[in-house]
């Protein structure tokens, strides 16, 4: 049996995460990308990888089903999972922003009216508006959030932006940046102690592969 089980987010971060681990000498067989298997070992047999939806990574790690995981800061904040997050891996950089039509930017949030916000991040969205004293109605969508303002479902959205292209093409502008997000290594609190040596090795190993980040 492998020393550690690591949960990786499918989708946006998957290829970069696999590449990052490869640089650290932990090689996930190419089969991972091609096949539909959701659980496989690295070449050394010391690590098992499970591939799950991004939002599920903190869940698997918090429950200890996976000892560690890689997911975006955005997903981690939304989950509010009680885990260690020892490394900012630096890749998958994007911004979590409030966006809306250009005219809504000028108006700002009318603090006396309820803001209607469509998002995949209900917890972060509610926190953000409540902290600013703005009453908020959060509309939870599971994709294509940028459509909401165009169709009149909501005035604003809270969503991830990488290049800003999708926003522009849907006639939206960034109104405020909530946080920047990068991929994080997260670690289960029990595993941190129960598998201390293996975990310390993994963290030290990955740390050496974090490249210099722009602007820091």
């Amino acid at each position: 049996m492998a020393d550690l089980t690591i949960a990786l987010a499918k989708g946006r971060l998957q290829d970069e995460a696999i590449e990052f681990f490869r640089r650290a000498g932990i090689v996930v067989p190419d089969e991972a990308r091609r096949s539909r298997r959701l659980l496989l070992d690295d070449e050394s047999g010391r690590y098992s990888f499970i591939f799950v939806k991004p939002a599920d990574v903190p869940v698997y790690v918090e429950y200890g089903v996976a000892d560690a995981g890689v997911c975006g800061r955005d997903v981690l904040m939304e989950s509010d999972a009680d885990v260690h997050e020892p490394l900012d891996l630096g890749f998958g950089r994007c911004r979590l922003v409030v966006a809306g039509k250009p005219e809504s930017e000028e108006r700002g949030y009318n603090p006396l009216a309820t803001a209607r916000v469509a998002t995949k991040f209900p917890r972060i969205t509610a926190d953000y508006f409540q902290q600013r004293g703005v009453p908020v109605e959060v509309i939870v969508l599971s994709g294509s959030v940028e459509l909401a303002p165009a169709l009149g479902l909501s005035e604003h959205i809270v969503d991830l932006v990488e290049t800003g292209r999708t926003l522009r093409e849907n006639g939206l502008v960034v109104i405020d940046e909530i946080t920047e997000s990068t991929a994080r290594l997260i670690v289960n609190r029990a595993s941190y102690h129960l598998k201390r040596d293996a975990m310390a090795r993994l963290i030290a190993n990955l740390r050496t592969c974090i490249s210099e980040k722009p602007g820091q």
């Binding site: 918090e62 200890g64 089903v65 009680d82 289960n188 609190r189 029990a190 102690h193 129960l194």
Partner: peptide, 11 residues
């Protein structure tokens, strides 16, 4: 002190 056991993700 926090007590952790194999098989449980939390103390």
């Amino acid at each position: 002190f926090n007590i952790y056991a194999q098989g449980l993700g939390t103390a």
